[in-house]
Amino acid sequence: MLLPVIGLSRRADVAEVIGAGLVAGAAGLGHRRIAVLLDRPAATVRGWLRRFVGRAESVRAGFTALAVDVDAGTAPPLAAGSGFADAVAAVLAATAAVAAGWPGLALTVSPWRLAAAVSHGGLLAPADGGQLINTNRLWAGV
């Protein structure tokens, strides 16, 4: 089955909603408060946060590499205070690098759609779920 770029594998919510929860988690909010803000069940939000904690280092490394690969002038994001927050910052930095390289995309692609596309929908996949980052340089021919 093909997964649209707006979604993440095995998740009912679109990438932007999950991303908003991850950004709130990186800012220090707990799963119950995020659940209220996003109008989602607390157990669902808790699952997102727990799964992202387990993926944080590979997400940070992969999206930092993407940011630098797309825009060599991009400095890696500064440490944000936790592995979780560092990973969220790396996704945002990669999005900024893509937006700088292709200004028209900035209006249509959110950080979390980019994360869904680059991770093949596996941003919150189990750690042994295979490859996280798309290493194909799809932009190289543009």
Rank of each mutant, 00 (worst) to 15 (best):
A116M: 04
R40K: 13
A12V: 08
V68Y: 10
G121H: 06
R137K: 12
L22V: 05
A100H: 12
V45E: 03
R33Y: 15
W102V: 06
L22Q: 05
D13C: 08
V142L: 01
V109M: 13
V91T: 03
V53C: 09
A61Y: 03
A72T: 01
A93Q: 06
G19W: 14
G25H: 12
V59K: 03
V14T: 10
A90P: 04
G122S: 11
G129Q: 08
A116T: 01
A26P: 05
V53T: 11
G121V: 01
V59Y: 05
F63R: 01
G62E: 05
L138G: 13
R46C: 06
A79E: 15
R55H: 10
F84Y: 05
A140Q: 00
A72M: 03
V5E: 11
N136E: 15
A140P: 00
M1V: 07
T135G: 14
A115L: 06
S9F: 14
A90N: 02
N134C: 14
L78N: 07
A43H: 13
R51D: 07
A85L: 03
G122C: 10
L8Y: 15
A90G: 05
A127G: 10
D128M: 07
A67I: 01
P103W: 05
V14I: 10
L29R: 14
L3P: 00
R137N: 08
G129L: 08
P111E: 09
D69A: 14
A117Y: 12
G83Q: 00
S9Y: 14
A127L: 10
A115M: 08
G122V: 01
V88N: 08
D69P: 01
I18N: 10
A27R: 14
F63T: 01
P111Q: 11
G73S: 07
L37F: 15
R11M: 06
Q131K: 13
A127M: 07
